[in-house]
């Protein structure tokens, strides 16, 4: 039981490194789809928020859904405000670092509030930032995932041996 529990803990820790990569990838996907929907299809921000949800698989999907719901209320607030509120509210459910969260929040500060060319520039800049953070996240994942898994199994074994 001790070995299983410890291994499970190792798996959970290891998965959080993978989860961060997936969440960052979802944010990047959102930005890419947003750019295409905005410039090529000419969709409104709230329609883009609704349609991009299908491309996501992590907790980012829930945040985007909540922001979309906020925009459907009788008197919707600015996207920027709802964006920040929802990220802060759901922060605990994400594996993103503080730096990732800051990047994610900063997306809401420009989304939809400038002309097309500026939107594209902002999006491309943010994609660049996220790419860098993803590189770091992948390195961290590769480095720490094995350690966490091994540590889980070995830790369990050690505790069991000590108790014996």
């Amino acid at each position: 039981m001790i070995i299983s529990g410890s291994t499970l803990l190792g798996i959970v820790i290891a998965n959080s490194f993978s989860k961060r990569v997936k969440e960052l990838f979802d944010i990047k996907t959102f930005l890419t789809v947003f750019e295409t929907s905005m410039s090529d299809i000419g969709m409104h921000t709230e329609d883009i928020l609704q349609s991009t949800r299908q491309y996501m698989k992590t907790g980012i999907k829930q945040i985007i859904s909540n922001i979309y719901s906020d925009m459907q209320t009788e008197y919707p607030d600015l996207l920027e405000k709802s964006w920040e509120e929802q990220i802060i509210k759901n922060r605990g459910k994400l594996s993103l670092t503080d730096q990732d969260i800051d990047t994610f929040i900063s997306i809401g500060k420009f989304l939809g509030n400038t002309g097309l060319e500026n939107q594209k520039k902002h999006i491309q800049h943010m994609i660049g930032v996220i790419d860098k953070q993803m590189e770091h996240a992948v390195t961290q994942r590769d480095k720490n995932k094995k350690i966490a898994l091994n540590f889980g199994v070995l830790g369990g074994l050690m505790i069991t041996l000590m108790l014996m």
Partner: peptide, 16 residues
């Protein structure tokens, strides 16, 4: 600024 953003449904780029 807020009025313009709300009026464009947070999509200023659509109304430029």
């Amino acid at each position: 600024k807020t009025i313009v953003e709300l009026a464009t449904r947070n999509s200023v780029y659509m109304h430029l």
